[in-house]
């Protein structure tokens, strides 16, 4: 570790004098690479936040879709149908823009002293106070805001898929199980919470596991939303670097993308292991898997 730090801070001062391992050690620890490593955190952070949020949206969507209240049911149906029917990429571009401009329009009318027209020719113009975040905000605030918008897009899109999976899983719980709950005096809420919900997971798990894998694989879309994710940095770092740069090298994109490949393989392979274990644990004693017994 000491040697590593030594290398980072002192001998790296003149990269052109370095060769072999020392060169690589310095190259791989320059400021640009540290940003690359940080961007893995961005991706993992997105996954960690998007998954529970999408599940939340999914539950809301599934419950709305199954609701007895006509208006709510239609909202649920439209939500699921719309997101499923529109290509993901279009939605990913549309949602953040919609939220961003929506917030700014609202702020424009509530915060600006003189409210001129927002759409001036080609331009979308709100007053300085209505900007979100303010132009004067620190760059990290802008990054965080961009990240939050992307997160919202992921939650909405994957929430719709999750809503469908959860809706299907809720329907897959055998009616006999719910009828029995009713026969023992449970009301609709009790039967839902005590019987349907816990039994639903075993049916939802394969679909949710699948969604999780798709979510992992969809993280490079962050790049499309202008967030500097691992794909951005891999492409940036891998590109041919001339003598203008301290560490000139030919086109190394293939190595960087191979590193991403390994990262994604480990992520999906690891999650598959976890989900398989979860599936085994959840199906302990459950008749639903063995296909016999009480569920039939």
């Amino acid at each position: 570790m000491r040697g590593f730090l030594f290398c980072m801070f002192e001998s790296c001062a003149d990269p052109s004098s370095l060769t072999g391992l020392a060169w690589f050690a310095c190259y791989l620890t320059n400021g640009k690479h540290l940003l690359f490593y940080q961007s893995f955190g961005t991706v993992l952070g997105l996954l960690a936040l998007a998954a529970p949020l999408a599940l939340l949206f999914g539950f809301a969507g599934a419950l709305a879709k199954r609701s007895q209240i006509p208006g709510l049911r239609q909202i649920g149906q439209v939500y699921v149908a719309m997101v499923r029917g529109i290509p993901d990429v279009v939605f990913f571009l549309f949602v953040p823009l919609l939220i961003d401009q929506g917030i700014e329009v609202v702020r424009h009318y509530s915060l600006c002293e003189s409210t001129g027209p927002i759409y001036q020719g080609n331009d979308f113009v709100v007053c300085d106070a209505a900007k979100m975040p303010l132009s004067s905000a620190e760059p990290w605030v802008h990054s965080l805001y961009g990240f939050a918008l992307a997160l919202a897009a992921y939650a909405i899109v994957f929430g719709a898929f999750a809503a469908n999976t959860l809706d299907g899983a809720l329907s897959a719980v055998p009616t006999a199980q719910l009828e029995t709950a009713r026969a023992y005096g449970m009301n609709a809420r009790q039967s839902f919470v005590r019987i349907q919900l816990p039994q639903m997971w075993i049916y939802a798990l394969p679909g949710l596991a699948n969604l999780w894998q798709i979510l992992i694989k969809a993280t490079p879309l962050l790049f499309l939303l202008g967030i500097e994710d691992i794909v951005y940095w891999a492409r940036e770092l891998g590109g041919t670097k001339g003598s203008r740069f301290a560490y000139p090298h030919p086109d190394w994109r293939i190595y960087y993308f191979a590193a991403l490949l390994v990262f994604y393989m480990i992520m999906t392979w690891g999650s598959e292991k976890v989900f398989n274990r979860l599936q085994v644990r959840m199906s302990v004693g459950q008749a639903t898997l063995s296909g016999k017994g009480a569920a039939l």
Partner: peptide, 14 residues
Amino acid sequence: SMVFQQFNLWSHLS
């Protein structure tokens, strides 16, 4: 209390 032909024990509970 009802007892069913297919027992209908709740499958997720012991």
